[in-house]
Design a protein around this nucleic acid. Structure first.
Ligand SMILES: [Zn+2]
Ligand SMILES: [Zn+2]
Ligand SMILES: [Zn+2]
Ligand SMILES: [Zn+2]
Lengths: 137, 137
DNA sequence: CTTGACCTTGGTGTGTACTCTAAGGTTTAT
DNA sequence: ATAAACCTTAGAGTACACACCAAGGTCAAG
């Protein structure tokens, strides 16, 4: 299968596939005589693995680690895999906590403002940002 | 006040201040004869505004908009300011939702894996990513 | 045999918020 | 007078995950 058809089947761009190849995430099985990339069953499975890993939030760098483990499963432990997963989960949790603080602060700000059409001279969003410390502390 | 002292007082780097200046977020009141940046009260207040806005999650681009409104309050309405705030809040909410899905999926994965020291040949994290569709659907 | 659709490589651009470097000028203290 | 500590500019580098481009080669259909 040439790159275009392969990309279509997976709903990604050919650029993405070349990018993944360049970054050692997915190498096509072989090349045709003309030098065209030739994708097969194995690459299809691997690409699906990558897309699923992306779907649960892993970055490409992390997926690369997962792939290396997957390639040589007997050289790695469950512990290692679970560790990667937990670390990622905790990182995501931290980010969620930060964004939740943002959301809370923004809600407080928005609730203070009347949102009317009059000039913003006394807008409480602006005055709060000007005057008050510790909005998020 | 020269840039170094100013930066120290605010807990940011001199690079950051020059960066903000380049991107029209904060211009020092004046320059000394030698061409050194000279920061005063007004810039201090404005920098605090910027830092507070950052603390509630606004990006520098959004802060720039807020500053432009702040400079000419009578030319802008409360509505405008509230709109910016609400838009940002909703964007943050979306991102939280996405990350929460990630967190959920990662938790499910982690729970499936024993995390032991044995080889990862049968690791359910890997087999799940290999085999199952619709982890997040 | 030419048109159009596909493929190749290498390189640049995007957005975010800085950080770092090079090469040099100024100020302050000793 | 000289060294340390500060300041200046312009420009490059970082991370992330691609998207886009130019210049050219290949392939199937009409
Ligand atoms: Zn109002
Ligand atoms: Zn208002
Ligand atoms: Zn196990
Ligand atoms: Zn496992």
């Amino acid at each position: 299968m040439k790159i275009g058809e392969f990309a279509n089947q997976l709903g990604v761009s050919t650029d993405t596939l070349r990018y993944y190849e360049k970054h050692n995430l997915l190498t096509p099985s072989s090349r045709t005589e003309a030098g065209y990339r030739d994708y097969g069953e194995a690459t299809l499975k691997q690409m699906k693995f990558i897309l699923r890993a992306k779907n649960v939030g892993f970055s490409l760098a992390e997926i690369k680690e997962l792939l290396q483990i997957k390639f040589k499963k007997h050289q790695h432990s469950c512990h290692e895999v679970k560790d990667l997963t937990i670390q990622k989960r905790d990182l995501v949790a931290e980010r969620i906590a930060e964004l939740t603080r943002f959301h809370q602060s923004l809600s407080v700000l928005a609730d203070k403002c009347c949102g009317g059409q009059e000039p913003a001279d006394n807008c409480s969003i602006l005055t709060t940002l000007e005057d008050i410390d510790g909005l998020t502390q």
